[in-house]
Amino acid sequence: MATQHSRSAARIMISPAVLLLLAWMIVPLALTIYFSLLRYNLLMPGTERFVGLLNYKLFFNNPAFFTALLNTLLLVGGVLIITVVGGILLAILLDQPMWGQGIVRILVIAPFFVMPTVSALVWKNMFMNPVSGLFAEFSKAVGLQPFDFLTHAPLASIIGIVSWQWLPFATLILLTAIQSLDSEQMEAAEMDGASPLSRFWYITLPHLSRAITVVILIQTIFLLSVFAEILVTTNGGPGNASTNLTYLVYARSLLNFDVGGGSAGGVVAIILANIVAIFLMRMIGKNLDA
């Protein structure tokens, strides 16, 4: 396969992709790091100067940062728990014999294809609105006081919306994994007298462990960057109650024009994502050998 000719051709053909991605990675990254060391406000052009780690210090000393960090972790953790547990149960259910399996599958997967701004708006206005939303109507119908989700439980509401968007992803991948389970192995266990619960525990779950890990890692990458749902529903509020790290950096830099402070937040977000990425890359890398 490989001659000198084809090897040099290969090098030329791969270089546009490599160079573009290299530029895409290095230039903004270097600039973000550089900005994070400056006092740099877009409203005060010409006053930029080097301030060392001051932005980081301010960022870490700002209570909003810890709120945002905590919210980020709650958001990621909450959605992960809901989607993974829900996804496993749903995948097992969808793997059972039934009528109209294909249609049910399509119904379950649909939310994944809804753009984030649409799903956020639909949930906010048509379901969670305390006056005319469906939940309020339901409360009134059973004689309860309507609950103002986005005011009194903003983060939980967002977790709910985001979970609705990602449950299909987890279900689809786990279902694919379940369907690759050797049915003879199941039948052998059944012959051995294993109860459904122990079959789930000793065969299905270990078989799924790899897919579960993949779901967790990939979702984490995306969930760390949840943005549109917050922007559309709560704008991070009330106060900072639903501000995550991504939204905080956005608010800092594009709403308050504090480029230095925003960049410091960006660097923190990068570090956080990298911790997850390292594990994810290991997994994918292992698979590449096989």
Partner: peptide, 10 residues
């Protein structure tokens, strides 16, 4: 895996 917010500003 680079979070978009990390490079938004530049």
């Amino acid at each position: 895996m680079l979070p978009p917010v990390g490079v938004l500003i530049p």
